[in-house]
């Protein structure tokens, strides 16, 4: 059941999640996002994982009219295909760069080596971009590694940290607080505000993790 929640007076969160992550739902989310972005009264659409945040100016736009528009566009949207590139991410696993590897291994009931292999075996897809500039939510994590986020976020996780949390994989594009668990580190530049395309990854891209040589 799709629900629409208030996110303040000038925001609406469409939540289409129904059980496990759905790739079809995600493609509908992207289609809805793209359609709404053509509307002058929509300020911003932020696709999440099986959900979509829409912002508008409540001074100009009536929230209930926007809610109606969102519902209509969502109902009419169909799952769209988006072009996908494959990006290979080299990772140094464990040790000082992967302080939660042992914890995750215990959670998964695996050895550290098996945990690394499970992380590398995944074929990940960029489902959403957000949290921090250039952070990608990757779907496709081995369910055994679906460790919940930390109860209280760490105040500082280093740029390049290769992380998992809430059933997703990701990488830290900058040093920031985070509640995700750290498996390793990459030196790929994930976001540069001065590049013509600041983010390295786009929605729908495929990601593969390999051991850094």
């Amino acid at each position: 059941m799709t629900r629409i929640h208030m996110a303040g007076a000038g925001g609406l969160l469409l939540d289409a999640a129904d059980g496990p992550f759905s790739d079809t739902t995600q493609r509908r989310i992207w289609a809805t996002s793209r359609e709404l972005n053509t509307r002058p009264d929509v300020l911003q659409t932020i696709p999440g994982v099986n959900n979509l945040l829409v912002t508008f100016d409540a001074v100009q736009t009536d929230p209930s009219a926007m809610e109606e528009l969102l519902r209509t566009v969502w109902t009419q949207a169909s799952a769209e295909e988006v072009p996908s590139r494959e990006i290979v991410v080299p990772v140094v696993y464990g040790g000082a760069f992967g302080e939660d590897l042992a914890l995750v291994a215990r959670f998964a009931n695996l050895t550290e080596e098996e945990t690394i292999n499970a992380h590398m075996a995944g074929r990940y897809s960029v489902a959403a971009i957000g949290a921090m500039a250039g952070f990608v939510y990757l779907t496709g994590l081995d369910p055994r590694l679906a460790i919940p986020r930390r109860d209280s976020p760490r105040l500082r996780v280093e740029e390049g940290a290769v992380v998992i949390g809430g059933g997703h994989a990701g990488m830290m594009p900058c040093t920031s607080p985070s509640g995700w668990h750290i498996l390793g580190r990459t030196d790929l530049c994930l976001f540069d505000a001065f590049r013509p395309e600041p983010g390295l990854l786009r929605l729908g891209d495929t990601v593969r993790f390999v051991r850094a040589s």
């Binding site: 959900n51 109860d151 209280s152």
Partner: peptide
């Protein structure tokens, strides 16, 4: 609750498990 990650705006009052 186990929520998928979603967009949040300034002003959002989050309640972590603590």
């Amino acid at each position: 609750l186990s929520l998928f990650s979603h967009g949040i705006l300034p002003g959002t009052v989050q309640v972590p498990p603590a």
